[in-house]
Design a protein around this nucleic acid. Structure first.
Lengths: 345, 345
DNA sequence: TCGTTTTTCTAGATCGATTTAGAAGAACGA
DNA sequence: TCGTTCTTCTAAATCGATCTAGAAAAACGA
């Protein structure tokens, strides 16, 4: 049963291996009758078609696109925003019958090379929300694998599909400033705080490029506001909850909380509920992304077209007809009931 | 820059290719000094480490697990239930630093072999909600790739992690029967109805194994009820909406609607809202899965431990210590406000 | 000091296909 | 009938590593 290769089939039929290969890959290179005969013999022998790895090696095409998907792969799926990106990407991948390879980014043994990013057989890669300077990015670059990022890089020849993070956050900041907010807590994703102990950070300690830019956008729009950057851990509802608790139970409570993702903001919403605080009245709350649950929760947020982002990344990676390798997607401030005028002191 | 291989590095350092290979894979097989020298030379030459495809070919390990993920890959991400499964699987994959290969199942050119399932370099596969008899399953079997399914198969040597679909559905059926329901519409995922035109089906026309079993469970629990099987298309909110519309606007409205997934049920909920129908009073509604949104919507449903399912599948595929290759997971009927007594005629 | 073990490294076969260049034969046009 | 083109098929090189068995050198024990 095992050990049946192209050669076995070729011998059985009495043709050359090349011909068997052609039977599978280039049907017009041999007579229909012979092809039938070969396929039948293959069936008989239990040959399941050309070996994937061998083909990949010889032809130089893996038939798969790698997805570098946030630090913790398992966390990625807890954010509908990330999932939306993946859905868009999958749509295009499906169209080009290409597989999607989700790679864990655990940075163990980077040098030794026993790393998924190092080992993965991929033709190209999509980089979603990976903190700048992550070793995996370097590995990818070293391997010479074309990549598209969801963050604008500084290299002019880097491909990306992104939003104007600074501008988008600035819009939100202006909205809050107009409402009179001068004391704002910002909830960010942070690996350091993942232990469970919420902590306050400086801008430079924020690892993720997009988060950093959003904070700068807020700062720009509300230059004389006090911005506290707080993290309760990875990007998840529980982290938002913890981060918000930390802030709400502190001596001087801010008048507004901004989650740099809706997921974080929804966590903060829970913390507010527990404390009997009404969003938009007692304290303003805003998020980022506009995931479906944000609408249901009445959350003010910044909408970005996430599925389109995924699709665009897919097109750049797979569709040769795509020439624009740097695409800026539109964003929109969505004002809902969770934001309101800052209460008087 | 390009064309740098093991050999190049070996020649540059003045050692054999085997030694360079060992420098990457078996550090204890050579002196630390030489290893340093080799790694340095590799760096210098721009060698990015052993080629993934070549390694996969020679060593027979691809370092990836395939995921056959529902018919339409893009649809899979619209159901939090499916995403939960993936999250659990990803967790285990990450632990074993194995990648996850999401394969599109579009069945084009199955015979020719230009198919993702045929071409994928994978060591094992997880089969999630793929209709029985799908050609991809046969391809997988032919290739001799070990697989774990989320449906119980009939072969005794097949691995699976599943729930007792019949029993789970029967519990829900009993609940509805006790409430006096005798006329129930069942919303199912169906590819035929994907065109946009909702349609009524027979049990045998339902493609998915799990759906079929759940219907049988309902039938078993409510033998003298009328069960109408209806589909509005693929598994998505919009399909549930369309299917429910079809049923609600028909001559004889049922007294209860069961979505065979929460996503479908949530779609039905929207259709009811539009028509001013209060779930649990005017008409009962139930789902399946217990996704987070179900709780928020007050949806009666059958809970299944989806993340654990994903984890269990991952363990069977990757952890040699796992011996139980067929695991039945528990389910639980969650009664919420969306189900109530059948109104008198 | 000599045999033995251990460490360090290498030669050559091999994994399973695809590709390139070209041979053999059939069909064709004049 | 002869040269040309087209179809159908093949031989041999190649993709880039890993593996097995074993050689050479170093370390060790008595």
């Amino acid at each position: 049963m095992a050990g049946v290769t192209l050669k076995t089939v070729a011998k059985a039929v009495g043709v050359s291996p090349s011909t068997v290969s052609n039977a599978y890959n280039k049907p017009d290179q041999l007579s229909a009758a012979l092809r039938e005969r070969i396929l039948a013999a293959a069936q008989e022998l239990g040959y399941a078609g050309p070996d994937a790895s061998a083909r990949a090696l010889r032809s130089g095409k893996a038939g798969a696109v790698g997805v570098l998907f946030t630090d913790k792969l398992a966390y990625a799926f807890s954010d509908p925003y990330a999932v939306g990106f993946l859905a868009g990407l999958a749509e295009v991948a499906e169209e080009f019958s290409t597989s999607l390879l989700l790679m864990p980014l655990s940075s163990t043994d980077i040098a030794g090379g026993s790393n998924a990013v190092q080992q993965a057989a991929i033709d190209a890669a999509a980089i979603f929300c990976v903190p700048g300077g992550h070793p995996a990015l370097e590995i990818l670059a070293n391997r010479g694998i074309p990549a598209v990022s969801t963050d604008r890089g500084d290299h002019p020849d880097l491909s990306w599909v992104a939003i104007d993070e600074v501008e988008a956050a600035a819009q939100l900041g202006e909205h809050l400033a107009r409402l009179g907010h001068r004391d704002v807590a910002v909830l960010v994703d942070n690996a350091q705080a993942a232990g469970g102990r919420p902590m306050e950070l400086t801008v430079d300690e924020v690892g993720y490029t997009d988060c950093e830019l959003r904070i700068r956008g807020l700062q720009k729009a509300m230059p004389d506001a006090r911005l506290r950057i707080v993290s309760g851990g990875h990007n998840a509802i529980a982290s938002g909850l913890r981060g918000a608790e930390f802030v709400l139970d502190s001596q001087d409570r801010p008048t507004a909380i901004v989650g740099l993702s809706d997921v974080q903001a929804l966590g903060a919403l829970e913390a507010m509920k527990v404390r009997g605080l009404t969003p938009g009245r007692d304290l303003s709350l805003a998020g980022f992304d506009d995931i479906p649950a944000a609408a249901a929760a009445g959350l003010t947020t910044v909408r970005q077209p996430i599925k389109d982002k995924g699709r665009a990344v897919g097109r750049i990676l797979l569709d040769p007809a795509t020439t624009e390798r740097q695409q800026l997607m539109p964003t929109q401030l969505i004002v809902r009931s969770s934001s309101g005028p800052a209460p008087r002191r």
